[in-house]
Design a protein around this nucleic acid. Structure first.
Lengths: 331, 331
DNA sequence: ATGAAAGCGCTAACAG
DNA sequence: CTGTTAGCGCTTTCAT
């Protein structure tokens, strides 16, 4: 039914091997025969069967992008959506396809999804089941971590400067004259939440400002939870004049709560978010946010993985990307 | 290196065939041997190699999701992002992986991405190069269209009720007392834009209201273009009191323009969008929008494709989903 | 109920 | 520079 390498070989009057070579190692074929093969291939609308090729080369040019289930589906999370896009773009540029899935689907006996499909490598974004990680690692399947880090292991990881980003945000608010600054600590996965929270506390302290624990909220990282929390907070007489939120979604919730309470942003309440995701410019006033370079993060993750797939060595095992505060109307 | 079916056969003391059968046709294997094989497989951490399987069955349980380039990357477009998620979920539920790509990548000689990878079927979202479509169709590769329709062909398509949705939106504004209603016609792809524009005009007419052509804008479907356009519109003395926008992105732009001009939404300007995408609840006041059932759209597209892959027949070749106006604060 | 053999379409030694 | 041979790991007739 489908045209195979053999059909092309017949028409071009040569062996399968030569046809194969014209596609894989064009340099090793005489110009004349190469042309003949190419013409035959075109005439027959031949295109090499990647499955058959994968069968023998043991590589199928597909990688998996596994996102921590709480951030799934990808769409819902503007941050990881951006990372995914960058991964996808870099992968496609190198001839790789990307199979996306959630950590839950993977964990549910469907490690098979990874194993069966025989992806060449895997990118884990966000929290990760270490068992699966080591499983893959043991099987020699290259793995790259995004926004996570398994200490003590030699697994490649790409993260951003959580601490420095938070510091910039807090100092910015202080420079704007704020002294009572609260924090919305959305429950992202521990690794991230903890660093941002600690950075907040330490920076406040270092700048000589007290941290009022009544205004440090640990809440689910949803817009709804943020709206509820901030609405209640705004009813307090000595409420903060500024709020640092550990992601954009909760920051948007904070802005909405303030607007609904009839307050002005940033005059009555300044808000800063984290991630620099697409929602920053949807809300009005637009959200000041610590921008993580998600494009670079995804690109680097994919590029590193592909290098490993090619047997090349990785220069940096742990990469930390700079985070940069982008000031907009909300502060 | 990797454990194969043969290793399992040895350990279980049977032939490869029997091992294969325990996984594919468990009913055709004696309970006792089945157990023995299963135990051996588990012990060896065996998992069938999908590539080898694909090689012989000629199916690799991967489908492609091709999005019209102008809507790419998926992230950027909250509408198609939602469709993609639903496609992905339904596919995964059925053991299929999804390879996403843009129509541009596909068109650029890289039809191969589809051909080489030998996906079992393809979903095209938005505008489509008909040549590629017919190419695939000719090769017997099942295809499903989302938000598009090739008239006169027998290609399965899933769309939503553009006309009815628009009608609901316009009537809603009229019911709210608006008489001077403008329209922001973002340049989506022709098929969609035209229907929504025509529906707007016809509904206004039918309701006995004049369409002031000065306030029917055909603009790029971006937030920026919408902000520019609406900012200028608001400077007109006899400006509309309401605006129907043919997608949410431009509607958000309209709201932002009004707020920046110091106007109140919806009191000074009511805004209605189209799509019911995630941005509706990010902006404040939240956006009234014609909700397209993207979840169902994606699910149906994937389900239909998979049915075709299984050789089953499709009940409905052309499906039109109902659209429903969701009223929020912006009107 | 099970096994032997053939083959899916391709690449990779190894010769020539 | 080109061809021959031997698989990659699995499913599928066809026997038994």
């Amino acid at each position: 039914m489908a045209v195979t390498i053999e059909d092309v070989a017949h028409l071009a009057g040569c062996s399968k091997t030569t046809v194969s070579r014209t596609f894989v190692l064009p340099g090793k074929v005489k110009e004349e025969t190469r042309q003949r093969v190419l013409r035959a291939a075109e005439q027959l609308h031949y295109s090499p069967n990647a499955i058959a090729r994968a069968m023998v080369t043991q590589r199928n040019y597909n990688i998996a992008f596994i996102l921590y289930e709480k951030h799934f589906p990808i769409t819902i999370n503007p941050f990881y959506a951006a990372v995914y896009e960058a991964v996808h773009a870099e992968a496609e540029r190198n001839g790789y396809g990307v199979l996306a899935s959630s950590s839950r689907a993977v964990a549910q006996g469907e490690t098979d999804l990874l194993m069966r499909k025989r992806v060449d490598g895997v990118i884990f974004a966000g929290q990760t089941d270490t068992d699966i990680l080591f499983d893959l690692h043991a099987q020699g399947i290259p793995v790259v971590l995004v926004n996570n880090d398994i200490e003590g292991s030699d697994i490649v990881s790409i993260r951003s400067d959580e601490y420095g980003g938070t510091q910039q945000a807090v100092r910015h608010l202080i420079a704007r004259g704020h002294r009572r600054i609260g924090m919305l600590s959305g429950q992202l996965f521990p690794y991230i939440s903890e660093i941002r929270l600690r950075a907040f506390r330490e920076t406040m302290l270092r700048e000589g400002l007290p941290v009022d624990e009544r205004y440090v909220y640990s809440i689910p990282a949803t817009r709804e939870a943020a709206i509820d929390t901030v609405t209640r907070m705004l009813a307090q007489p000595d409420r903060p004049t500024a709020l640092f939120c550990n992601n954009d979604t909760t920051a948007v919730g904070a802005i909405k709560a303030a607007l609904r309470a009839g307050l002005r942003v940033p005059d009555d309440l300044a808000v800063v978010g984290f991630d620099g995701s697409s929602v920053c410019t949807v809300i009005e006033p637009e959200l000041t946010s610590v921008a993580v370079d998600t494009a670079r993060m995804g690109r680097l993750a994919a590029a590193s993985l592909i290098r490993m797939l090619n047997g090349e060595t990785i220069d940096a095992q742990r990469v930390q990307l700079a985070a940069r505060l982008v000031v907009r109307g909300s502060s």
